[in-house]
Amino acid sequence: MLENIISELEKQFQLEAVDHNSSDLVFLTIDRDHAVMAIDLLKWKFGYKHFVLLTAVDFLEEGKFQLTYILNNPDTKTDIGVRVRIDREDANMVSAHHLWPTVATYQRELKEMFGIDFPGSPRLNDPFILEGWEGTPPYRRDFDTKAFAASFYHQREGRTTNDPATYMKEKLYPNE
């Protein structure tokens, strides 16, 4: 079932990697410029009509963002995830809002949280959750959330933190 689709896709696109997670879920890695075309094909030709989610993972060490589009075919009850690895410094991606209107909302979120640009996506720069955020987008891994919270918010003094493992060991088994 999925094999047929993959072989069909392989004729038209360069699949960088194919990861079979289970019999009804497969992840394909496609390059930045062709990924949206592949999603288009999956939607209209192979019946992956339902757009489940779009998310990003920050691979700080490799200098890459990995975008994952998960699509679902409600008739065959199978899922295909399309992975795209884009450059972290100049992070931008082809917008897919013309396929499903909801994609625009996901792209707004990614723009705000990761700073990934999707040229042409509607209302891309409107505040999504953070209102008036300045500086590094908070979901990037080089953003130090603890230091930011300590300096930006009014803290209450007297808060202590314990390592759970050693703390419970001292509490429960003080003699060992």
Binding site: I129, L130, P138, F143, T145, K146, F148, A149, A150, F152, Y153, H154, Q155, R156, G158, R159
Partner: peptide, 16 residues
């Protein structure tokens, strides 16, 4: 609401 609770290091919630 008292001291941030489990969100003590969150970038987006107030601490007290």
């Amino acid at each position: 609401t008292i001291n941030g609770g489990m969100y003590f290091d969150s970038y987006n919630t107030i601490k007290r």
